[in-house]
Simulated assay, not measured.
Amino acid sequence: MPLWRRIADDIKTAIAGGEWRAGDKLPPESDLAARFGANRHTVRRAVGTLAEEGLLVVEQGRGTFVVEETINYQIGARTRFGEILRHHDRRVDVEILAVEDVSVGRDIANPLEIAAGTRCVRLQVLRRSDGQPLCIADHWFPGERFLRMAELFAETRSITRSFEALGIADYRRRETQVAARLPKTWEASKLEIPRTRPLIVTSSINEDLTGTVIEYGVTRFSGDRTAIVFES
Rank of each mutant, 00 (worst) to 15 (best):
I114T: 01
E95W: 04
A51H: 14
F36L: 13
L126G: 06
G117C: 08
L97C: 10
N110K: 02
R119P: 08
F65H: 04
S103P: 10
R119H: 12
V99T: 03
G82A: 03
I71P: 09
A46I: 00
R78G: 10
N110L: 10
V67L: 01
Q124P: 05
P111R: 01
R106W: 14
R80V: 03
G37H: 07
D93P: 13
V125D: 07
T49W: 13
L112F: 02
H88P: 10
Y73P: 00
V43M: 13
T49L: 14
A34P: 10
R106T: 07
T79H: 05
R62D: 14
R80I: 03
R45L: 14
E113P: 05
R106D: 15
G82I: 04
V47Y: 14
L112Y: 00
E113I: 02
T79W: 03
T49G: 15
R80C: 04
N39D: 15
E53I: 00
N72R: 01
C120N: 10
R90C: 14
V102K: 04
Q60P: 05
A38M: 04
L85P: 09
F36W: 13
H87T: 06
R40V: 15
I96G: 09
H41D: 14
T79C: 06
I114A: 04
V121D: 15
G63F: 03
E95G: 12
R106I: 09
E53T: 01
I71A: 06
R40F: 14
E53K: 04
C120Q: 11
C120V: 06
A116C: 10
I84H: 10
A109I: 02
A46D: 11
H87G: 11
A46G: 08
A46M: 02
R78H: 07
I114Y: 00
V57W: 08
E113K: 01
A46P: 13
N72Q: 02
R86V: 06
A34C: 11
V66H: 00
V121M: 12
R106N: 10
S103D: 13
T70R: 02
Y73V: 00
E68F: 01
L56R: 02
P111F: 00
R44G: 15
A116M: 10
D101G: 07
V121P: 13
E83N: 08
T42P: 13
